[in-house]
Nucleic acid binder design. Sequence first.
DNA 1: TTTTTTTGTTTAATCGATTAAACTTATATT
DNA 2: AATATAAGTTTAATCGATTAAACAAAAAAA
Lengths: 347, 347
Amino acid sequence: MNAKKISLKDIASKAGVSTALVSYVLNGKEKESRVGHEIAKKIKEIARELNYQPNHLAKSLRSGKTHTIGLVIADISNPFFANIARVVEDEAKKSGYTVIIGSSDEKAEKAWDLLNVLINRQVDGFIIVSSEHSESHIHYLKERNIPFVLLDRHFPDLQTDFVATNNYKASYDAGVHLINGGYERIGIIAYRSDMYHMQERVRGYQQALKDHKFVFKNNWLKEVRFENIEQEVKTAIDEMTSTEDKVDAIIFATYGLAINGLKYINELKLRVPDDLAIVSFGQAEVFDLYYCPITYLKQPLELLGKTSVEFLLAKLKNPDEGMKQILMEAKLIARDSSMAKTSSPVT
Amino acid sequence: MNAKKISLKDIASKAGVSTALVSYVLNGKEKESRVGHEIAKKIKEIARELNYQPNHLAKSLRSGKTHTIGLVIADISNPFFANIARVVEDEAKKSGYTVIIGSSDEKAEKAWDLLNVLINRQVDGFIIVSSEHSESHIHYLKERNIPFVLLDRHFPDLQTDFVATNNYKASYDAGVHLINGGYERIGIIAYRSDMYHMQERVRGYQQALKDHKFVFKNNWLKEVRFENIEQEVKTAIDEMTSTEDKVDAIIFATYGLAINGLKYINELKLRVPDDLAIVSFGQAEVFDLYYCPITYLKQPLELLGKTSVEFLLAKLKNPDEGMKQILMEAKLIARDSSMAKTSSPVT
DNA sequence: TTTTTTTGTTTAATCGATTAAACTTATATT
DNA sequence: AATATAAGTTTAATCGATTAAACAAAAAAA
């Protein structure tokens, strides 16, 4: 009944040879180790017959390689990360790697715990979506010589491999797109964060205004705290839409901000895009299905995920591999939520 | 620079004792093994000093326990599964377990591959969202005595632990809700599948009609193939809305079906709920943000996930634990998409 | 025929942690 | 003083696979 695990030893004794031979044969080293032709065949047969499955733990203990990579993200229940995770999983599997995913909730402390759990589990390397204040983690990994690739976010002052989006450019494009559509009082809602990717999103937006001779008003930039997103997004929108400078367009710097913002905009019965035009980072079904489909900045998820795996595996194969950094372009997908004002010139 | 791994042996030699003592002390067995008080203290100190982290592989190889569980789902990029995964991850972590997630894409073959990869990685047990035609997997796990719990879906003819939703009841509720709202020609779009959970969703709907003396028309039940969902949902809706029996309400049996359906309904410029009322299984931001918020059957995600982990861990602790099966209730969240017809009695 | 080379196979150490059993001392009992 | 018990520590086997090194037997070269 209880078909227990088959080990090399079982095969060896059944074939009447030592475990060494079995190991050689089953690892395709019969040539180098000149195993007898007959006996090799027999071993293979028995292995198949008993449905032998090698014990990864033993293999890993010996080799020091687990063929496992740790993927640290903010939250697997966020569609952006869920999609990335899926790509990473598939890509890793192609090379025989298994992925262990952990959610940090954007908290450095959780991320640190995760990192340590996974290090103890002997993952071969990491793909990390960093959270704020986690520079020390990076230093630690470097010191310990643990291979890793930063994904989606990076620290400009740290020398690391990374695969990310050109957020400055994306945000700049969003700004220009709205300006070209005739919008004149464009605001942005971002997270209050020191993270570079967030700063870049704000900077791109501001540069777009500046390049088009728009005077940026402080009231147009709202930075909300992740921990209190729902309330603060509401306040932000209230403030942006109530003064005499009230905005006619908002850029949401993340998917989560957009969801909260749109809900509140619905509550306020503001019409998109007539009362308020919208452009958002992220991508999800909800942007398609909103009554007025939402213009968004589509990040190359697939490519981001694939490339990060590729970089990491290259590094695992050859630890002396040079540093690799890539910024990819997001694509602005124009929809009705940022439709050009009819009274304005369109480009 | 390259701070290499600290092992028991390193501590032992630094303390001038054997590894046995170190192991005893670090596992809190100094009492049973009557380790000297002095030496115990010294060992602990050195361990802390060197920041000793035990090697999980070695531990696992010896103990046969990896403290890892495999979570097999259809697709991590589907929000339903992503949310479940998050709950499972958090719950498992509380007990020191790590989760490895794999996506099967509803394909038995992929699920089988996954299962085997994870078995080779020596996971202690599985939480599985089954796909069609995977009964044999269940038999295999039982034969091999590998602990597992089925989540969200189960096979009524197989004796297994499971944690799932009462789909019959949920669907019945949806039907009754629409009937009470005055809808008279209610259709359902489901997957063409032998899976019990899907059958139950159809059955509940049909029973609701029957109990209210509605005559069920074949044209009101559409079963589409997962592989060709986009096209077939369109066809289904076309057929349901074009004949003389055309439906005035549709129940979508899954989130994915609803997304595709709503997109097409938008294309057709059908108004919800005036032209077509909607109730859907699943839950996601998009249901809130649709111009007419969608009535949905809210499954107790949190509880499903938690309970499945609980069941599995109980079984891991005590393999002779009796079989556990739970059906949980989904809750119908009524929104505008199924608003009662004004000309009809409301309940 | 003797020596060398080739071919085929086994032995044993290793990865790192655990733990039953063996082994010393020291202390208690008779 | 002789013996039993307790206290403290080490030895060595084990988990399963890998692989360098040792070994034995057969074939080739001298």
